[in-house]
Amino acid sequence: MARKRWAAQTEPQPFLAFVLNTPAVGLLLLLVVYPIVYSFWLSLHAYNLRKPRQFEFIGLDNYADILSSGQFWHAARVTAVFSVGSIGLTVVLGTLLALLLNEKWPGRGVLRAVALIPWAIPPVVNGLVWQWMLEGRHGLLNYIFQSIGLIDSYQAWLSYPETALPALVIAQVWNHVPFVAIVILAALQTVPDELYDSALVDGANIFRRFFFVTLPWLSHALLLVLITQTMVALRTFDIIYVLTGGGPGDSTTVLAWLTYITTFSYTDFGKGNAYAYTIAVLTMILSVFYIRLLWKRGEMAK
């Protein structure tokens, strides 16, 4: 009898729907929407924990301050160099690795599994690993470079501006290449063999087959990878925290690090949140740019 009543219930029940959805929606509002809105609200105020009673609405003044400060533009430049370097290397190396893992050769299965390991390592741990690698007195990198004759004496790689930023790029790339490789590998496996046969008959050599068949087929996957890697690069904080602390000097002070020290060292919550929003807007602009660049071509591949 009870079953029948349930089954017969065809009336829409908006009230029940709201009740059932409330916990999930409430959680989202509390943990995602509220902080986002609140941090924007803070970014419009002069609010420093050193003077916690002073909470004054100043409109976009924080943003104006940021954009007119040399500190911001310096950090923007460092971020740009770090991002272009790490994204470029990650995507190129990841794609090459994917191409390698897509070929048939003995041991491929093992390498496919092994290649994933760096991705499974949390960024902070990755930073610690590279701290050991780059260490000035006992570091592995020093040992390797000296034994192949690349350097005469051990170097403190993280203590010089010229090597600190490249070191960060390398650590970042090592961490993220597997992700790119897996995404690209998945896309590679969907390329129909017939296209290569056809290109062979059409007289395309191996490079042209790559540029005319493989690469266009990968455009969607590359788009995905570029967007996620850009977000990752612009937000990079962990390995800087562990490896350089933004130094030496401010040579590795990226925007995310500037946001962190503004907020938590200078306790300037207003400006810190303005920095966070600036990074978010920057990421959005870049994503739109990527999509416009690759979408049309990628869509054709479907």
């Binding site: 017939e194 046969d197 056809s198 290109a199 062979l200 008959v201 395309a204 005319f212 479907k302």
Partner: peptide, 19 residues
């Protein structure tokens, strides 16, 4: 090699270049 055989081939799934 195929390109020097002066042949043209039509494939089962057409093998058109999608882009």
């Amino acid at each position: 090699p195929p390109k020097e055989r002066d042949i043209a081939m039509v494939f089962q799934n057409y093998a058109l270049y999608p882009h």
